[in-house]
Amino acid sequence: MGKLGSFVDHVGWPRVIIAVFLLLLFVAAPFVEVRLDASIGDTLVRFGMNGVLVLAMVPMIQSGCGLNFGLPLGIIAGLLGAVTSLELNLTGLAGFAAALAIAVPFGLLFGWAYGRLLNKVKGGEMMIATYVGFSSVAFMCMMWLLLPYRNPTMVWGYAGKGLRTTISVQEYWGGVLSDLLGIRVTDFLSVPTGMLLFVGLMCLLVWAFFHTKTGTAMTAVGTNPDFARASGIDIDRMRTLSVMMSTTLGAVGIIVYQQSFGFIQLYMGPFFMAFPSVAAILIGGASVHKATLTNVLIGTFLFQGILTMTPSVINSMLQTDMSEVIRIIVSNGMILYALTRVTRVNSK
């Protein structure tokens, strides 16, 4: 019991509960006639879709900028890349690569400005990040109406201008990554190998970065700013760099998401997209000040697993759709837990 207790203490109650809950869902699935292989397949797909978006949390947490509620800003950079790639009528992997190539500079640019802003408001980053995200989404709502995109599959038919709220990428580069090297295990379960490899590659890059000199300096800024300052690290520069990385990863992440999802969602689409990613990394064991790649992987799997399993299993058990409510309670409860825990350690 003592060993179990200390294990639970170490991992944290909410995580244990969520993991056990997910396990129960998987166990219960066959009994309520939910196909296990389909569930696992869905979970894998959603894991791949969201992996990079969750990864985008890591640099900012590590440099002490807190949870990146400003993820929508990165997503907007990604959306710009995606629609521009469609405007150029590029298809297949070339289209996907072009979307990335266009999105990354935007991500770096937005990240730079956003990082400069956050440097001015140290200590209040999270609230400001939230509202920077919201207002940039609202600002882009106007831009999507006004920007001169002309591809007929993207704009409203009758007006000939103004981008649609959802744009299909199926004809262009839908599924290029997911189907790459795809392995079909059963009729319902196919592994999106290409996408998972891409997520792995991104993780590897981030991992490698945090083992360079700059990367360790960034971590130092997050864990002990005074020490970092004393050892001559330019704190503001490190923070800006981390925000640029987070924003760019967000841009890449949304493109990966779209190629699997099959649609680009504009206007208010990116509005609440930060919250699932924030919740996922926290469920994976990250805190407001520290996040590792393990947190990303475990968290994405657990959170997306629950999102996949609750609608199917709970619905067939209770005959009512409670998945939305469960999602709201789990994700926000998790964020709340992390926010209140951190300060308890700090205030001592």
């Binding site: 400001i128 509202y131 207002s135 600002f139």
Partner: peptide, 9 residues
Amino acid sequence: YGIIAVSLV
């Protein structure tokens, strides 16, 4: 949203 963001900043 912008106004809240500006005031907070």
